[in-house]
Design a binder for these strands. Structure first.
Lengths: 185, 185
DNA sequence: CCACAAAAAGAATCGCGGCTCCTTTTGTGA
DNA sequence: TCACAAAAGGAGCCGCGATTCTTTTTGTGG
């Protein structure tokens, strides 16, 4: 078995990362052992270590995955020709929240307060999302409210900031609703 | 040394809890050992265990302390005869954020996603703070905007919800600013 | 279809950290 | 001031969990 083909290798990596996210969402970043992830993914501990250098590396990967998925939801709206107004935008983002991922997201925030690597990932993703929101709101101001492009961009900034903040608060609330309150979707 | 006088006993408890908060803010909930807290507080590990049943108990106490202090800041405004408008209220709350405590607060959120005890503490404190905000905003609507009491209470609810959400977002941002960016106050 | 290097398995290692225990040192009530 | 039970000290104990090592099992390039 020489070096796995890149596609296969990536498949294994996501298989492990996905299992990790499930474990984290259930028991938290620190309370899940490599053995847990091994069981959840169906791979041995040794195998996991041939795909990730160590646990921190795996946590980083899981954080990226969760945060990136979140950003993807937004990316769709950014390219929309009929931009939703800010309230509607927030409502849709909120509706798209997955409780399990929200939990891991919030755990990630906690980790970010002391781990520089995670911190950078969180801050970068947040900035990127805010920038996309900025684009959304700007487009809305121009197309629906008929503002001029230049002032629209400027006026959109504080609105985007607000929407981002409210969205993050909703993430927190979703994460704190107990697992048993989750309704099967 | 028979049972310490209650005052002394409480003193020791806060001495330990304060040390714990400092450690947590520096290294996170899970990465601080009892030995760390022992060093920071100047007490031995054995001594710590005669004041707290176990580490979880200590984490709970630290969480309570941080969250309670936060609520206290707000309590002052709630009793004010000249209630600030919501924007001003948010600005003052934001200004009162202590970065170290913000970090522990956010770590607490992460922990709350999987630990029912911590979760209850966080949810209860949040609810209590929101209720106080509700009172503040209601008072403002009545005294400054001259609304009638009954509708004022009703209209205040969503505003309070918003202020709370924006405040929590500010807490997150404060927690994520690196320690080195902290300016000595 | 072969050969082999890499990947999967999973047992074993090893250090860390929560917690306990026993000793020494007080603070407290009388 | 005394006597004592409780609190502080701090040296281990013990288990858990990250990581590593060895063996076995493939997938892949030729």
């Amino acid at each position: 078995m020489p070096r796995l083909t890149d596609a296969r290798k990536e498949l294994r990596r996501t298989q492990i990362a996905d299992a990790a996210v499930r474990c984290f969402s259930r028991n938290g970043l620190e309370r899940t052992s490599i053995a847990d992830i091994s069981a959840e993914s169906g791979l041995s501990t040794g195998s996991i270590y041939s795909h990730y250098r160590n646990k921190a590396d795996l946590v980083r990967a899981a954080a990226c995955e969760v945060l990136a998925k979140r950003a993807d939801v937004l990316r769709e709206y950014a390219a929309l020709d009929a931009p939703p107004d800010p309230d509607e935008l927030l409502a849709r983002l909120t509706a798209a929240i997955d409780p399990a991922e929200a939990r891991v997201g919030v755990q990630t925030w906690g980790e970010a307060t002391t781990d520089p690597d995670i911190r950078d990932i969180v801050v970068d993703t947040t900035d990127r999302m805010r920038a996309m929101l900025h684009d959304c709101v700007t487009a809305w101001l121009i197309k629906v409210k008929h503002h001029e492009p230049a002032p629209a961009r400027e006026r959109a900034a504080p609105i985007a900031h607000r929407v981002m903040a409210l969205y993050q608060a909703e993430l927190l609330y979703a994460a704190l609703r107990t697992p048993t309150e989750e309704t099967a979707s």
